[in-house]
Design a protein around this nucleic acid. Structure first.
Length: 305
DNA sequence: CAAATATCCTGATAGC
DNA sequence: TGCTATCAGGATATTT
């Protein structure tokens, strides 16, 4: 399941492989992947025409959302919408020449993949969007479970206004983070999963962070001692940074792979996630599983209190 | 009002 | 063997 580290790996691949190129053609076949354009049959065409012609000028990420910064190229002219000039007497920038930048946002949800191909490559099952680039390659959006989505919107992205600081990028200082954590009454793991509290942590890394911090994931955040909360803060950074260095976690189902189809190596470093009944790597105690916020949660009862 | 639950979906796997 | 039931989970809507 793609979480912050996996999405960051995708962003780095995109930065390397597609920035500087232009989307010359788009073929959308999966309606659910473009559902922000409506639920009728016209959504596919609406997405295609909205995205065709975009020039990719950068990348961005917040939590599990990744986006391409795009514009309409040098001839697209300044501000306003792309359509006729009708209003805007109160435009803030005085006659700027730089084209308007917007964001082509991607959320992989459970099973989405962004893949980099040459046109002759066979289409994988569940390929819902193909974006043809002017550099001889294609970006493809593949998503068996169709929870993921792609849409273009303003940059800054108003749809992400409710998302909290990114767990890695924002690097909220440990004192602020742990104080905010101790103000919450839910189980610690549930707080870590709350994207409005901190963005980018999913079911795998929330368990791994709790383990690294020696905290039982069921422990109510307001009942954490100050040292415990501080350890959650520092290990949030450490666990995610380490996972990014390993290019993310690919589970046995390989639902997450990078743009070239390669899996990440972070799963080999998991201490608790999906290790039910296996010995704790620190003390040998059998790893247990419980349910928190509807999610399978793994922990060592001896190492985590 | 916060927290638990249902929902969307396919594929892997468990159980009979 | 081959079928059905269950589970996996990110975000959001709905219910408790």
């Amino acid at each position: 399941m793609p979480e912050g580290p996996e999405v960051e790996t995708v962003r780095r691949d995109l930065e390397k492989l597609v920035v500087g190129s232009t989307i010359t053609a788009v073929r959308a076949t999966g309606r659910r992947s473009v559902r922000r354009y409506g639920d009728g049959p016209s959504a596919l065409a609406a997405f295609e025409s909205d995205v065709t012609g975009l020039r990719i000028v950068g990348t961005g990420r917040l939590g599990k959302y990744v986006w391409l910064q795009v514009d309409r190229g040098p001839e697209s002219g300044p501000p306003g919408q792309e359509s006729p000039a009708q209003e805007s007497p109160a435009q803030e920038s005085p006659a700027q020449e730089s084209p308007v930048i917007s964001a082509l946002v991607i959320h992989l949800r459970m099973s989405g993949q962004v893949r980099w191909h040459v046109p002759s490559d066979e289409l994988a099952l569940h390929t819902h969007i193909v974006m043809v680039l002017d550099n001889g390659h294609e970006l493809r959006f593949v998503d068996p479970r169709t929870f993921g989505e792609v849409w273009r919107t303003d940059d800054p992205i108003r749809e992400l206004a409710h998302i909290g600081p990114d767990a890695v990028i924002a690097a909220t200082d440990a004192r602020t983070f742990s104080a905010a954590l101790r103000a919450r009454r839910s189980p610690t793991k549930a707080v870590l999963l709350d994207q409005g509290f901190v963005a980018g942590i999913g079911n795998i890394y929330s368990d791994e962070i709790c383990f690294a911090a020696g905290v039982r994931p069921t422990k109510r955040a307001n009942e954490l001692t100050k040292p415990q909360a501080a350890r959650i803060a520092t290990h949030t950074q450490a666990v995610l940074t380490n996972a990014i260095e390993r290019r993310g976690s690919s589970l046995k189902d390989r639902q997450y792979v990078d743009l070239l189809g390669e899996g990440g190596l972070a799963s080999a470093a998991h201490h608790v996630y999906d290790r039910l009944g296996q010995p704790c790597l620190i003390c040998g105690t059998s790893i247990e599983r419980t349910k928190i916020a509807g999610r399978s949660s793994y922990f060592c009862r001896k190492c985590q209190r």
